[in-house]
Nucleic acid binder design. Structure first.
Lengths: 343, 343
DNA sequence: GTGAAAGCGCTAACAG
DNA sequence: CTGTTAGCGCTTTCAC
């Protein structure tokens, strides 16, 4: 155990603790000669001194800790970049993340919350694995908090979410630009921000291009996974579509499978575009899948940024009057690969 | 800002801070009447009191924090369960994880290390995304630390890793039990714990079953990804193998692809078993892939357990004399699905 | 320029 | 049974 304290340093360097503190932290507004500064620091490193963040935090009144609660981001197959983005941004501001993955368990969430507050986190990010509406835990109000990849029912907390509409728009536009006019859409039937938003984008792109919206081209599948895509294939092909926009890459993967079993090929027989850019899938399908990425890293980064901005803003208002904070939309990047043919 | 302190509680409840402290923490060895306890706690909750972990940690001399440094676990597509396991176990012991994902960057690692030590973490887990040998960062020695999913060159730090040999053994045995005798193995050519271990297990199973080892059945691919499996298909089929053990699920996925393009089918034309149980792939291939799982959750859990055990053990010896701690092997569970046919 | 000293909020002897 | 008090290690105001 290295229990070298500032006192030890001060004594060894022949200065007072105050001076030692200033030297160690290189406090610019302490006017001590460079020589002293250097001497203290040298002594410190010789003795293997290390600041005690507990004591420091207690004295200064801040912890430099930011809480990050997720319902599965840390352990989900592909949302981890959110954490990376958050961490990088926090880091940049000299803060460190206290991460707890609740797995969606309210009990754990409650406890995590308690833990973080006890540790005097300077802000709290509450994030969801999948973009959705959440019931923000009671208590999140009254704390500097922001929602990431989810939004509150009442819009009382600032939120940072992917621009699903924009994503659907770019995916469909791409198909349109390649000359497609009959574009099927395998969508999830549950009303999620993703299914609603992407459909909206799809319709918007169609309308922009002067293509009439044909509801029969929209296949609704309960889940949006490999099975759905596999199952939906026949229906899609029956519509005579020359291209299909899949709700996500997993759906596209299933679609590829089914298609291949019928001896048909992407993109010759039909063009495909996915969503999510789940690399294990999209980058390795044959042919590689053109898709729309989720801006995970940016979600994390902007979440922290929003948090810190709010923190500075001492007015820290829990959302103006009406209670309708609009979520901040983060664009979804198009990832072009080989699954679209011009016609 | 809730800045209700113990003092406030004590005053409001008409007791001393000491008594308040005991009541709040429900200290069993403080002999105060239940009535007082209750009163204090009630006052505390009424006033919205919350312990200050910084002050508490400083006074008690421990932080209840455990550092978790990873080179990508948090952000990797499928290793996140390690964190979940670690977190659950830490939690069970009343500790909380301070996680930093370095992305393999030494600079960040260094800083993370510093950060954690300043925060007086009670132990440090150093984990790798992929099972490998690491150069444990200088400074890890002298701290209560354990390696997870990686091991030190010199075996000076306790390590917890998956049992690759056992995994290769069960995969191959399963094929053998289904009656296969000519079993190909698409392996990665780099000498990693995975490639070496799985091959060893494969050979061991063969030998157990009295099947001669035929080197020509082992296909070595530089990487072990979808492309490898895709590419290796021809070679595998040319050997006349009736089954193939793929180094991982991604390889199996590529193999499936290539096979289907030739109009052949799993498992009728050839049985396949993978490794990793990367669900996005294995559970959704057609037919679903029989594979060997990585014990991610357990790695995390056991890592923390080892750490805490070491911590208790005040003798905390940096590995006995010779310097050869054997890594703790965690079994890899077989996940049986539909890609094996009896012959 | 530098030091003394008063906290930060809590715990844990030690008294009573 | 309960209160007093001396720290825990550091920051920061205020004197010198």
């Amino acid at each position: 155990m290295d229990m070298v304290t500032l006192q030890d340093i001060a004594r060894a360097a022949g200065v007072s603790v105050a001076t030692a503190s200033w030297a160690i932290n290189d406090d610019p507004k302490a006017r001590i000669p460079q020589a002293t500064r250097d001497r203290v620091r040298r002594v410190a490193s010789e003795l293997g001194y290390r600041r005690n963040a507990l004591a420091r935090g207690l004295a200064r009144g801040h912890s430099d800790l930011i809480g990050f609660i997720s319902d599965g981001v840390a352990t989900s197959p592909f949302a981890g970049q959110v954490i990376r983005g958050a961490q990088d941004e926090a880091w940049r501001q000299g803060k460190i993340l206290l991460i707890v993955d609740t797995g969606g368990d309210r009990k754990i969430e409650e406890r995590a919350f308690e833990f973080m507050l006890e540790r005097r986190v300077e802000g709290l990010v509450y994030s969801s694995w999948v973009h959705r509406r959440v019931d923000a835990p009671v208590g999140l109000a009254g704390v500097n908090a922001v929602l990431v990849n989810c939004y509150d029912r009442l819009g009382r907390l600032p939120a940072v979410v992917p621009d699903e509409v924009g994503g659907g728009l770019s995916a469909t536009r791409l198909l349109l630009q390649a000359g497609h006019r009959r574009i099927a859409f395998i969508n999830a039937s549950a009303r999620t921000p993703a299914s609603v938003g992407r459909l909206k984008g799809y319709r918007q792109a169609l309308s922009e291009a002067g293509v009439a919206y044909d509801p029969s081209l929209v296949i609704r599948e309960k889940e949006a996974d490999q099975e759905s895509g596999y199952r939906a294939m026949r229906e899609v092909m029956a519509t005579g579509a020359t291209a299909v926009f899949c709700h996500n890459d997993r759906t596209a993967m299933g679609f590829y499978d089914a298609l291949r079993e019928c001896g048909q090929r992407v993109p010759d027989d039909i063009s495909v575009v996915g969503f999510d850019n789940q690399e294990v899938i999209s980058a390795h399908l044959h042919p590689a899948l053109t898709t729309v990425g989720l801006p995970q890293y940016d979600l994390g980064r902007l979440g922290i940024r929003a948090l810190m901005a709010r923190g500075d803003d001492s007015t820290n208002h829990p959302a103006a009057g009406s209670g309708g904070l609009e979520p901040q939309l983060v664009p979804c990047p198009l990832v072009v690969r080989d699954s679209i043919a011009r016609i």
